[in-house]
């Protein structure tokens, strides 16, 4: 066996970091709603793809800059997240039932996407699509770099929000013990609406990153669920930075497996890591 070149290893490492940051970005909203709202929101993936298709539409047909589409998509998704939480609260949907309800919602959103954009593949043409720069012998594609920057920025901002602001402390308190938090004047229901809106907004942002780098197809919604769930569980529920770190660890491990062994072994990596984490630190998950 020939030892792979340093360029191959370096390029694969970059590739793993980039896809890992997307796992982390997709996992951010999921982790918040699962850990702090006790909702296993499968519709998060469908929302991300809806965001991707809307970005595609606004860019390819509407002629907007992809990054500017967030000005329309983020508020709309925030409103959707708030509405969803209001309905969940109104009908007292339990954590287990949230899994079923959001799965139904996923199917509805997938059908809606297919109805509007058909099942055919869609690739967004954007000014960023082919931009890349070179560091030594390594190529850094701009769309992937943007995803990394966005994922790091959002994860750190959310972490700082939850850790250092009164609003964030109230959110954590409400997630920890709603009754005691309420006794201290925390309006748990309002904060839940805000948190759900935020999680849906993150899905919209992840959609932008998907549209920048990937060819879209409605059925791709399901392709991301397994690995992102693994990143969220390894990273810790309700932890804004955990999914990003876990995502990058998974992404790099997968990429190195592809570079050094075989691409066919890569899917085993995320779930092997998940099993390992569940065996060794189940109490932290």
């Amino acid at each position: 066996m020939n030892f792979p070149s340093w360029t191959l290893l370096g390029q694969s490492l970059l590739s793993g970091i980039f896809i890992g940051s997307l796992y982390g970005l997709l996992g951010l909203g999921l982790s918040l709603s699962w850990g702090m709202l006790r909702q296993i929101n499968l519709a998060h993936f469908a929302l991300a793809f809806l965001g991707a298709y809307l970005t595609f539409q606004l860019t390819s047909v509407g002629g907007m800059d992809p990054l500017l589409t967030l000005g329309l998509i983020a508020p709309a998704f925030f409103a959707f997240g708030v509405l969803m939480q209001w309905l969940f609260s109104r009908f007292s949907i339990s954590p287990f039932n949230s899994l079923l309800v959001t799965f139904g919602l996923t199917v509805i959103i997938e059908s809606l996407i297919q109805w509007i954009w058909t099942a055919d593949y869609r690739k967004m043409d954007s000014v960023y699509g082919e931009m890349k720069f070179k560091i030594g012998s390594l190529y850094v594609p701009l769309p992937e770099l943007l995803t990394l920057i966005i994922a790091v920025t959002l994860s750190l901002s959310t972490w700082a929000l939850l850790r250092y602001t009164d609003l964030g402390k109230a959110m954590r308190a409400a997630a920890e013990d709603p009754q005691i938090a309420a006794a201290f004047g925390v309006n748990e229901k309002r904060l839940a609406l805000l948190l759900s809106g935020l999680a849906a907004t993150f899905a919209g942002v992840a959609g932008l990153c998907l549209a920048l780098s990937y060819t879209l197809s409605p059925s791709q919604i399901y392709a991301w669920i397994g690995v992102v769930f693994a990143a969220v569980m390894i990273g810790g529920l309700g932890n804004p930075i955990g999914p990003l770190i876990a995502g990058i660890v998974i992404g790099v491990a997968e990429a190195m497996t592809m570079a050094l062994i075989s691409p066919a072994w890569a899917p085993l990596v995320s779930f092997s890591l998940l099993i390992l984490v569940l065996l060794t630190r189940a109490d932290k998950v």
Binding site: P4, S5, T7, L8, Q11, S12, L14, S15, G16, F18, I19, Y214, A223, W224, V227, G251, E254, A255, M256, M258, A259, S262, P263, A264, A266, P267
Partner: peptide, 20 residues
């Protein structure tokens, strides 16, 4: 000769190996 599972999302390392 490389093989991947249907549904693979990251083709970066595969492309790099082909280039190599």
């Amino acid at each position: 000769f490389l093989e991947w599972e249907f549904g693979n999302k990251d083709f970066g390392p595969i492309a790099s190996r082909v280039k190599d």
